[in-house]
Design a protein around this nucleic acid. Structure first.
Lengths: 137, 137
DNA sequence: CTCGTTGCAAATGCTTTGCAATTGG
DNA sequence: CCAATTGCAAAGCATTTGCAACGAG
């Protein structure tokens, strides 16, 4: 089940009950929780877990490249455990719902050499915006 | 000079000295200031201007569609007056410098119908990442 | 055992808000 | 004139940090 936890353990990560709970809560597809949501769900299983630990843990997962930070607008960052398969995000302009999507082609290809201004370009993030089915109705 | 101010005035915007200074400070190409930087530069000309007013003013410019908010990572939002010509951003992973860039083609075209999940997709933002010339050296 | 990890509470950084005083049209 | 705008200071979030106690290996 918890592929995320397995991957982290495999990297010599020290596993504590707090870290396990955070990894379990965050695991799955189309999961895009804020740090606070992660804390709330983790606290259901481990009531004493602190916000600080959740932040530390999420930060480490990001450093290890197993979790991706998604900065939606100006609100709280969201955390996406789906870091192994490259993907982009489709965000509802009204309710903020996020879906993982897989565009065709390589986004990097759309930036021609003369538009790179001497940068060593290494990646591109695409955020598609629109109204989700629930908000259209 | 201040095209931005002219555009705002043309929309029936009430112009005060504070608003004029904010508009002037923000005008130009490849300008991506934080609210605090705008406040600092505005205060050089109008020492009593408050942060609250700068925030209010920037927020209104964004609502009117004349200025674009750029949320870089987890730091302060940046404000881009270049809202009339569509463009994307190239951000230095080390120092955070931002350049406006113009990719080829329409980013929306890369998201096929079967990846839209019933959303009414209306736009796409692309952030290219890499090292700027200064940070490569 | 020992060092990494945790929890707490306080601090920080960015942004918003309530409200009385001010001012543009 | 008078509603819109401003400044101030305080409140509001999201996140980070210092440090003593704790616990995994």
């Amino acid at each position: 089940m918890s592929d995320l936890l397995e991957r982290l353990r495999g990297r010599g990560w020290r596993v504590t009950s707090q870290r396990r709970v955070v990894a379990e809560v965050l695991d799955g597809d189309h999961v895009h929780l804020t740090a606070d949501e992660v804390h709330a769900r983790a606290a259901e299983r481990l009531p004493e877990i602190s916000r600080a630990t959740v932040y530390n843990t999420l930060g480490e997962m990001v450093s290890l490249g197993e979790v991706m930070e998604v900065s939606t607008d100006g609100r709280a960052k969201r955390y996406d455990p789906n870091a192994h398969h490259p993907h982009q995000h489709l965000v509802c302009s009204r309710c903020g719902t996020i879906r993982d999507v897989r565009p065709t082609g390589d986004p990097l290809a759309s930036l021609p050499p003369e538009e790179r201004f001497g940068f060593a370009v290494s990646g591109a993030e695409v955020t598609y915006r629109g109204l989700c089915p629930a908000c259209i109705a």
